[in-house]
């Protein structure tokens, strides 16, 4: 899938790992877990070392918890699927008070409202690359899953033929760094704390840790990539 120009070929492995992470995370947070998704997670955990896990204590802990969970629970069983499905629902959908609402605006404004100025700022960032939520206007743009999907899309662009599509790799990296700093890292630390505290399964506790660990790590990665591409 990737034709990388000469200048960036050295960084391709890191760009690929970033793509993997954002894919992994967006799938985790966009919607309730499906069986396919759980198989995907299990497969990702088979390899002896989870990418870059040694670089972050948080990721390491998270991976270990998920591995523990998967060793004790059979993801083919209905009960396990239902448990995880309910856990996602309880944490991120409702109907009761959400212990960790997955929207940026609920963390950044005092009254924890949806569709606020934060939402519009996020939308603006998406629109620079002509992205909008499929459920635009109905779903708030600053849902964690959507923000991660956005990072995934830009990571994908980073690996595409930059000469042909006219997007400058450096600009893509700058925009990702800004989005990470101005949005995700503004609220995810608090969100993941809430999530880790309130999740009842090792599975979602672990996911909270991987999320937090990776976003912190990705800022480092972007800084490094920008130094190379300056």
């Amino acid at each position: 899938m990737t034709k990388v120009n000469h200048a960036s070929s050295r960084v391709t492995p890191l760009l690929e790992l970033r793509l993997f992470y954002y894919d992994f995370l967006r799938r985790t947070f966009l919607m309730e877990p499906t069986k396919d998704f759980l198989v995907f997670v299990k497969n990702s955990m088979i390899a002896p070392d989870f990418p870059l896990a040694s670089e972050s204590g948080m990721i390491l802990e998270g991976v270990q918890q998920i591995k523990d969970y998967l060793s004790k629970n059979d993801i083919q069983s209905e009960t396990v699927c239902n448990d995880l499905h309910w856990e996602y629902t309880r944490l991120f959908i409702g109907p009761y008070q959400l212990p960790s609402p997955p929207w940026e605006s609920t963390y950044l404004n005092e009254e924890r409202l949806l569709f606020q100025k934060e939402t519009l700022a996020v939308r603006k960032a998406y629109l620079k690359y002509s992205f909008l939520p499929v459920e635009f206007g109905h779903e708030a743009d600053d849902h964690l899953g959507l923000e991660l999907d956005f990072m995934f899309r830009l990571s994908e662009l980073c690996l595409e033929d930059n000469d042909q599509n006219g997007v400058d790799l450096r600009q893509l990296l700058i925009d990702q760094k800004s989005f990470l700093e101005e949005h995700l890292l503004q609220w995810v630390p608090k969100f993941s704390q809430d999530m880790i505290q309130h999740a009842e399964t090792d599975f979602y506790q672990g996911m909270g840790k991987i999320l937090q660990g990776f976003l912190t790590l990705d800022l480092e990665a972007l800084l490094e990539l920008l130094t190379i591409n300056s």
Binding site: D23, R27, L30, T34, N43, Y126, F131, P133, V134
Partner: peptide, 13 residues
């Protein structure tokens, strides 16, 4: 990873 599971229509477009 990308080929493993198709993503249902709930992300960005």
């Amino acid at each position: 990873a990308a080929a493993a599971v198709t993503l249902p229509g709930c992300g960005l477009q």
